[in-house]
Amino acid sequence: MIDVLDLHKRYDGHHAVRGLTLAVAPGEVLGLVGPNGAGKTTTLRCLSGILTPTSGRVRIAGIDLADDPVAAKRALAFVPDEPALFEYLTVEEHLRFVARLYGVADAPARLPGLLDELELTAKRRALPGELSRGMRQKLAIGCALLHEPRALLLDEPLTGLDPLAMRRMKATIAARARGGAAVVLSSHLLHLVEELCTRLLVVHQGRAVAQGTIAELVAAQPALPGRSLEDVFVALTGAGA
C-alpha cells in the first residue's frame, strides 16, 4: 500500500533523509521512531506529497506520487503534529470542506457518526479558537479520516490528548488498520508505539538504523537481553551517549 524506495531529501545544505526504503502493507501499522531531528517529520511530509523528494520513489496504493500526485493524495491522509486548522471555519465546516475537497458524496450521512466517534458533536459549531488543544487535534484527525484513506500518515497523533481520548484514538487508529488502511505513525511515546505498531522503523540522522517487529529489534541486540524497547532505542540511536 505504501512503498518507498531509496528516498532522499536535501534542503538548505542539510541531508534530512538518506536512502530510506520501506513498505507498509494494508492492515499494518508502522511506527517511525527516532530522536529529535532524525528526519521523521520530513519523511512523513515526503510521503504525503507536501515535500518533493530529492530522489527516490514513493507509491501510495500503487500510484506514484511524482507521476500522479492528485490521485495518490486522494488515497492518503496526513495528520501533522500541530493541527493546521482554519480559524474561521467551525468543526462541522472543516469536515464539510474536506468532504468536498475529496469528493465524499455520502459525507452528510457520515458526519454525525464521525463527530460522535471523535467526541466533537457538542462542539460542531465551535471555531478552532474555542477548542482546547486536544479537541483541535481530534478535529485534525477527523478531517483525515473522513474520506477513509487507504494510507494514513500520522505525525505525533496523540499530542495534547487526555488519557481517555488517547485510548479512544488508539482504538480508532487500530480500527482503521483492521479496516485495511496502511498506517505510518511517528511518536516519541514508545509505550504507544509498542502497543499500537506491528512493525518499527528506527531512524537516526536520516538513515534507517533498524526495521522489524519489536521482538526482532530486541532480539537483534544480544548485548541487551530481556531489556525494554526504550533501552533498544537508546542503543540504536546513541541517545544515551
Partner: peptide, 12 residues
Amino acid sequence: VARRRWTPPLSA
C-alpha cells in the same frame, strides 16, 4: 461556545 453561525451551503 456552540453559537449559531450562518454558513453558505456547500454540496459534498
